[in-house]
Amino acid sequence: MAISEKLDAFFSEKMKEYPTSRSFLVPMLLYSQDEIGYVSDEVIAHLAKKTGLTELEVRNVISYYSMLRTKPAGRYNVQVCTNISCQLRGADELFAHCKKKLGIGHKQTTPDGMFSLEEVECIGACSWAPAVQVNYDFHENLTPQKMDAVLENCRKKAKQ
């Protein structure tokens, strides 16, 4: 899958802000993923050409960053932080609840492609723990009940 021309034009503009052509690579990978759901082989080939890098080098970079993936995930990627501040306030139970509720484990996707689940490291919501990011949206001070509402909301949004 390829990225849109609009996004590509945006990349070309942003690249001008740096003295080397590879500098904007990490954001380009992330924004490409946001658009098509993952970093596809086509995107890798395209960005390699765009930045004058080998595809290998682009893959080296991708595999370093934990948010980047080369396989599609669910429409809603549920990222449960279980780091210390969240753990002290019930994140493990929350993660267990999500696993049970969605019927999937860490880095798995529901068969309908609606949800992916991921246990993640600190997302900067320590004072509002436990917290979850669904895609880029923060949900904080969660309980299993509130989590159910978050998931339900996602399903509703998906139907619209």
Binding site: L56, R59, Y64
Partner: peptide, 9 residues
């Protein structure tokens, strides 16, 4: 040649 890289972390 640049045929080898480091992947993952």
């Amino acid at each position: 040649v640049w045929a080898l890289g480091v992947q993952n972390r």
